[in-house]
């Protein structure tokens, strides 16, 4: 089967088993290894990407369902030498990254959530993070950094 879709702005044609999960197309065919295949069962969230603007676990999304879709992976969030996305910058500034393998998925699932929920509080943020497991950090500092990010977004809006 042939599937045509856009990945990070480029047209992509996939030939093969339509049941191939998106994560394998990204990692094995496009070498977009920022998307991590950790559990392959939809529990950990490390493979989260945006499909047509929505956060999706790419291990559970067969490529055959994505004809005409637009996929954005972590590599496209702050491409090339551009500045980090403000959420990535907040994580860097708060020194929350440890082994780092959950963070691409964490960023890709939180960024759309925070876009939709700019007034989220700690509890809402934690609820939004249940689909993203982190084994290193114990989460709280990630939540701190997200709160910092939301505060600075609000300040920017108030000033601008």
């Amino acid at each position: 089967m042939t599937v045509t879709l856009r990945i990070n702005g480029s047209a992509c044609r996939f030939h093969g088993d339509p049941m191939t999960p998106l994560v394998d197309v990204l990692r094995r065919e496009r070498f977009l290894t920022g998307t991590k295949a950790v559990c392959r069962e939809g529990f950990c969230g490390a493979c989260t990407v945006e499909v047509d603007g929505e956060a999706v676990m790419s291990c559970l999304r067969p490529i055959g369902l994505l004809d005409g879709a637009t996929v954005k992976s972590i590599e496209a969030l702050a491409p090339g030498d551009t500045a980090l996305h403000p959420l990535q910058a907040a994580f860097e500034a708060a020194d929350v990254v440890q082994c780092g393998m959950c963070f691409p998925g964490m960023v890709m699932s939180l960024a759309p959530f925070l876009r939709e929920n700019p007034d989220a509080g700690r509890n809402e943020i934690k609820a939004a993070m249940v689909g993203n497991i982190c084994r290193c950090t114990g989460y709280e500092r990630i939540v701190d950094a997200v709160m910092n990010f939301l505060d600075s977004q609000k300040m920017e809006q108030a000033n601008g």
Binding site: R27, R28, L32, T33, G34, T35, S73, I74, E75, L77, A78, L84, Q88, F91, E92, A93, D95, V97, G100, M101, F103, P104, V107
Partner: peptide, 23 residues
Amino acid sequence: MDLPRRDARDKLRGRTRYTNDRA
């Protein structure tokens, strides 16, 4: 000092290549 991590940016951008990213 509270030195930040030099590897955080690449890890956050998904550019860090762990062993299982190197096939």
